[in-house]
Amino acid sequence: MALLSWNEIRTRAIKFSKEWESETSEHAEAKSFWDSFFNVFGISRRRVATFEKSVKKAGGEQGFVDLFWKGILLVEHKSKGKDLEKAYTQAKDYFPGLKEAELPKYILVSDFENFVLYDLDDGGERRFKLSQFPQNIELFGFIAGYQKQEIKEQDPVNIHAAEKMGELHDKLKEIGYTGYDLEVFLVRLLFCLFADDTGIFEKNLFRDYIEEETREDGHDLGFYLAGLFE
């Protein structure tokens, strides 16, 4: 999918701000609001995020996240004039019920008129009005596809990943996979991981495929990978 230019995104953001400037009711139009919000960046909300994800809170109480993009963004939406500090607290209450890989990098709370974006990696917090959205679109580079991950050459995570690939190579070789077939398999697997991480695929598409389609014990993993590569 081609990225929209910042100029195109800003034009869409202006139109979005005008369209929603008089909305007030959380339940009546919140879903349409967020579908339109993602469309500003040329992204179909359905491809990346879901509404009303069921999550157990710390005390065991069942909760429902207003909008959830696994591993990236959690949105808590309120009617106009509601306390957004409480909305942020409510958003954090969902964290105990999420898997480690699902924990978002950002929390966004809004009441249609006001937005607060929390960057959970660096502790940053940005507040702006709906009318100021066009001037703040760069905050959402992670939606538009422009935000780059900072990967250090000696990042322990990358070293660990390389070690895991080496272990996989040795295990497959032990059970009889050698030569060209083994190398092609590993290259294909590495490409899928790279494409997941850099935006060649839709964000986390490969990871989600593995998590959602295969068994946790891994006994059918080979079958699904073979089908994917075919």
Rank of each mutant, 00 (worst) to 15 (best):
L3E: 08
S5F: 00
S5K: 05
W6V: 00
W6H: 02
R10I: 02
R10A: 00
A13R: 00
K15G: 00
E19A: 06
E21H: 09
T24F: 03
T24K: 14
S25C: 10
E26S: 08
E29S: 14
A30N: 12
S36D: 15
S36W: 01
F37W: 09
I43H: 08
R45H: 10
R45G: 06
R46D: 12
V48K: 04
T50A: 11
F51N: 10
F51I: 02
E52L: 01
E52A: 04
E52D: 07
E61V: 10
Q62V: 09
G63Y: 01
F64W: 11
D66F: 03
W69E: 04
W69R: 01
G71Q: 07
L73N: 04
L74W: 00
V75R: 02
K78E: 06
S79C: 03
D83R: 08
L84G: 06
A87V: 01
T89M: 00
T89Q: 12
D93K: 11
Y94I: 04
Y94L: 03
F95V: 11
P96W: 05
G97M: 03
E100V: 13
P104Y: 08
P104F: 06
P104D: 05
Y106F: 15
I107G: 07
I107R: 07
L108V: 07
S110H: 07
E113S: 14
E113L: 05
E113R: 12
N114S: 14
F115C: 00
L117C: 05
Y118C: 04
D119R: 09
D122N: 13
G123M: 07
K129F: 08
F133G: 05
Q135Y: 14
N136D: 04
N136M: 10
I137N: 01
F142Q: 09
F142G: 12
A144V: 05
A144L: 05
Q147R: 15
Q147S: 13
Q149A: 12
E150R: 15
K152Q: 13
K152H: 14
D155S: 10
P156Q: 08
V157A: 15
H160W: 13
E163I: 15
E163Q: 13
K164H: 09
K164M: 14
M165I: 15
E167A: 10
E167Y: 08
E167F: 07
E167D: 12
H169K: 15
L172I: 10
E174I: 11
E174N: 11
E174R: 14
I175P: 01
G176F: 02
D181Y: 13
D181T: 13
L182G: 06
F185R: 10
V187D: 14
L189S: 12
F191E: 09
F194Y: 15
F194R: 11
A195C: 08
D196E: 02
T198A: 04
N204M: 10
N204E: 13
I210W: 03
E211V: 13
E213L: 11
R215V: 08
R215D: 09
D217G: 07
D217Y: 06
D217R: 05
G218A: 10
H219Y: 11
D220Y: 07
D220C: 08
G222V: 02
F223M: 12
L225V: 08
L228I: 03
